[in-house]
Nucleic acid binder design. Structure first.
Lengths: 228, 228
DNA sequence: CGCGGCTTTGATGTTCATCAAGTAAAGTGG
DNA sequence: CCACTTTACTTGATGAACATCAAAGCCGCG
């Protein structure tokens, strides 16, 4: 059988567009645009008008806003198959959050007007979107609450476990973020993030080779995250 | 003209069900159930299976979760016309958050299966829901971030202004929440919330009569909230 | 009336931010 | 490729912000 469109085999299709008929799919496939971003490049700038519906196909990104005094507040990280733009996409005309690649990334962009049309004409698609959005917003809120109730050590342990368990699925990985970015995510100072990492190292809980982290005592780290 | 259903004049209808046709409306009207809750009563318990789609018609409620150690973490407050159940409603089979009345409240409940049917058959309704949900989740997240970047005084000022500006629209109002609940919302200790209120009082920024608060120096309070 | 929860204030200690200073790493222009 | 600049990282010292503990008054409620 001839492959009419690469999208047919794209995981994103299964995750987000499963409710779309063949015919629609081909149309979207023709319209969609893939974009490459180098580590550090801006994908979406808060305040910009929403023109595209953006998925992350490969890589890793951070969502953040700037606080009153220009300090970056990281809301969450997103992996492939996570949304990138979806949260504010339906809420207004402008993006509420900025998105930046923290690893080389590829996005799949679909003109927003097309998605809008789809939603207004295909109830199953809309329902599906609703449920996905709901799950994502739930998760983000629960995550923020979980982080908030922890102390410094607990928060640092939490983010290490996040990368180990949910992103890389290895105990040995290269941190895609700077110490400062960790600080901006967990809401603590950079110095104290570093101090805590050093402390974990001194106690033999982790090993540090620059950006590379190896979790040695997983259970201890989990315990710190739970109780902290 | 004969009034077939009280819902025709309900504000909720305009806000949430505007996309529904007359015929559907009458059906929902017959199905819907209004419930009264006294201050303090539980409306939704986290973990319960989702059976109803719940709006707040009158009153004031708090949404919260229990942290690991049984400590209440308040996520947000909801006024009439705000959602109550909508956030987790589409994300899974169980409520993720608990909801309790902090003032005498009336909810309008619609069996969830009916809403589901509507969403799957009426794309405009689904699209409308999507946009409302998106706005709410955006607002909640931005609020949480805003609170997080403030210090103790800034946070207390923020919540006073929230009640004054968004809930009661008066500078003189009765706090519907205990000091402890304020603490659980802004993520600080009860004692320090009290201390801060006392300090505001000593500085002539507010007056306190038990639960009743009068904001005297609005601009100062706004300044504290901004800079804090 | 008396009990338990809410409120208030003070005293104390911990946690964390900030400041300072130095090293390492990474980008930049010649 | 090297000097230069900038940015990231690290550690220590200090002080501020905040939690916690303790004790007492208050209020509502059975």
């Amino acid at each position: 059988m001839e492959l009419k469109c690469k999208c047919e085999y794209c995981d994103l299709r299964n995750l987000f567009l499963e409710m779309v008929k063949e015919e629609e799919m081909l149309k979207l496939c023709a319209i969609k645009e893939e974009k490459n971003f180098k580590k550090g490049q801006v994908i979406i700038e808060a305040g910009e008008p929403i023109t595209n519906f953006v998925y992350l196909k490969e890589g890793l990104v951070k969502l953040f806003v700037e606080s009153n005094l220009g300090k970056e507040q990281i809301i969450t990280f997103a992996k492939p198959m996570d949304f990138v733009s979806i949260l504010s996409v339906f809420s207004g005309d402008n993006y509420q959050y900025s998105v930046t690649a923290i690893e080389d990334s590829i996005t799949c962009n679909i003109g927003f007007s097309h998605i809008k049309k789809l939603i207004h004409s295909n109830a199953s698609f809309a329902a599906n979107m609703l449920s996905k959005m709901s799950r994502i917003s739930d998760k983000m809120i629960l995550d923020m609450l979980e982080v908030r109730e922890k102390n410094l050590k607990g928060r640092v342990a939490f983010i290490l476990l996040y990368f180990a368990n949910h992103v890389y699925k290895e105990l040995d990985f290269e941190l895609p973020v700077s110490r400062k970015e960790i600080a901006n995510y967990i809401g603590m100072s950079t110095e104290n993030v570093i101090r805590t990492l050093s402390e974990f190292r001194k106690h033999g809980i982790i090993k540090i080779f620059g950006k590379v982290i190896e979790i040695v005592e997983l259970e201890k780290l989990q315990q710190i995250s739970r109780l902290g």
